[in-house]
Each structure stands twice: as structure tokens, then as C-alpha cells.
């Protein structure tokens, strides 16, 4: 399994053709207390860059874009009752959705953890 990061502050774990997507710890820290996560319906197909989910704090609603193209095969239903999971465990239990990849080459050019850390440090 390998983990990728985007400059839109999403992380992607890829295992075979399935990619698990969430937002980074840095992102949750910036957003503050998350109160609601609107997840896509299973079966939805995204092109890279489409609006895929919405994450809400009290004062803001932020769109999460699909970091890669694919079909939604599963969403994290635990977030419906416990949106705070995104704050407490953004990069593991606070995952958003799983995609079946349509174009693995899109992963090329994404950051690894070290590169993302460097990117965040530069902000």
C-alpha cells in the first residue's frame, strides 16, 4: 500500500485498484471543529477535480475535490454520527470515501509524505 498527498490537502491510500481518500491532519487543524461531512453517494463517478464531498465547520463549508478519477465504492458512514473523527483521526479513521481508480497514471506527480510535509511547511 502506498500513500499519496495532493496540494489540495487530501491523502490517498492506494491498494490495488481501490483508493481511500481523506483530508490531511493539517487541513483539519486549519478548519477547526468539523461538525458535518457530506459524502458522495456510492456508485457516483468522478473525474479528477470534481466536487466530491463537503466538510463543514460552524463557520465554513469547504469543498473536497476528487483527487483522482474513479467510482465511489464505499463511504465512511461513521462520519455521519461522529464528524469529530475527522479532527481526532484525520488520516486513518476519519477517511471519507473509497474510489475504484479509472486511471492509475493520475497518481504520478502526487506528493509522498515527505514532500507534503515540506509543502505544508512552505505555506
Amino acid at each position: 500500500m502506498s500513500r499519496y498527498f495532493t496540494d489540495e490537502h487530501e491523502w490517498i491510500d492506494v491498494e490495488g485498484e481501490i483508493a481511500t481518500v481523506g483530508i490531511t491532519d493539517y487541513a483539519q487543524e486549519q478548519l477547526g471543529d468539523i461538525v458535518f461531512v457530506e459524502l458522495p453517494a456510492e456508485g457516483t463517478t468522478f473525474e479528477k477535480g470534481d466536487d466530491a464531498a463537503v466538510v463543514e465547520s460552524v463557520k465554513a463549508a469547504s469543498d473536497v475535490y476528487a483527487p483522482i478519477s474513479g467510482e465511489v465504492v464505499e463511504t465512511n458512514s461513521a462520519l455521519e454520527d461522529e464528524p469529530a473523527l475527522v479532527n481526532s483521526d484525520a488520516e486513518e479513521d476519519g477517511w471519507f470515501f473509497k474510489l475504484r481508480l479509472t486511471d492509475a497514471t493520475e497518481l504520478e506527480g502526487l506528493m509522498n509524505e515527505a514532500a507534503y510535509k515540506k509543502f505544508v511547511a512552505s505555506l
Binding site: 458535518f36 463543514e56 465547520s57 460552524v58 463557520k59 465554513a60 463549508a61
Partner: peptide
């Protein structure tokens, strides 16, 4: 509450 539905945020 739930103001994120509203125009001043959304």
C-alpha cells in the same frame, strides 16, 4: 445553527 446552508457562508 447549521448556518453553512445559508448565503452568508455558502
Amino acid at each position: 445553527t447549521l448556518s453553512t446552508r445559508e448565503q452568508h457562508i455558502r
